[in-house]
């Protein structure tokens, strides 16, 4: 089972992680806005996560921690 943790406050909502996820686990939270004024990333389908780490590797702001 994979676990995702986010440094949500630092997310700039660029969405690069969303696009790179092979399992479409992530989305930019449509109804949330973080301190920086962005829609931050969230795990919409956490159960589908395979813990490949692609999202964290792609994220320019190192906001994603991936555990498996």
């Amino acid at each position: 089972m994979a676990k995702l943790t986010f440094r949500t406050d630092n997310c700039k909502g660029c969405g690069l992680c969303v696009d790179v996820c092979p399992k479409k686990v992530l989305q930019l939270a449509p109804d949330k806005i973080n301190k920086r004024g962005h829609h931050p990333v969230e795990a919409a389908r956490p159960d589908d996560c395979i813990g490949c780490g692609s999202c964290a590797i792609m994220c320019p702001d190192f906001i994603i921690k991936v555990e498996r």
Partner: peptide
């Protein structure tokens, strides 16, 4: 097991760069 986390050599601070 940690697959990915912020490297130690980077401080835990927000970067000023533009989104993406």
């Amino acid at each position: 097991m940690i697959v990915y986390d912020k490297p130690h050599a980077l401080l835990d601070v927000p970067l000023h760069y533009c989104p993406g």
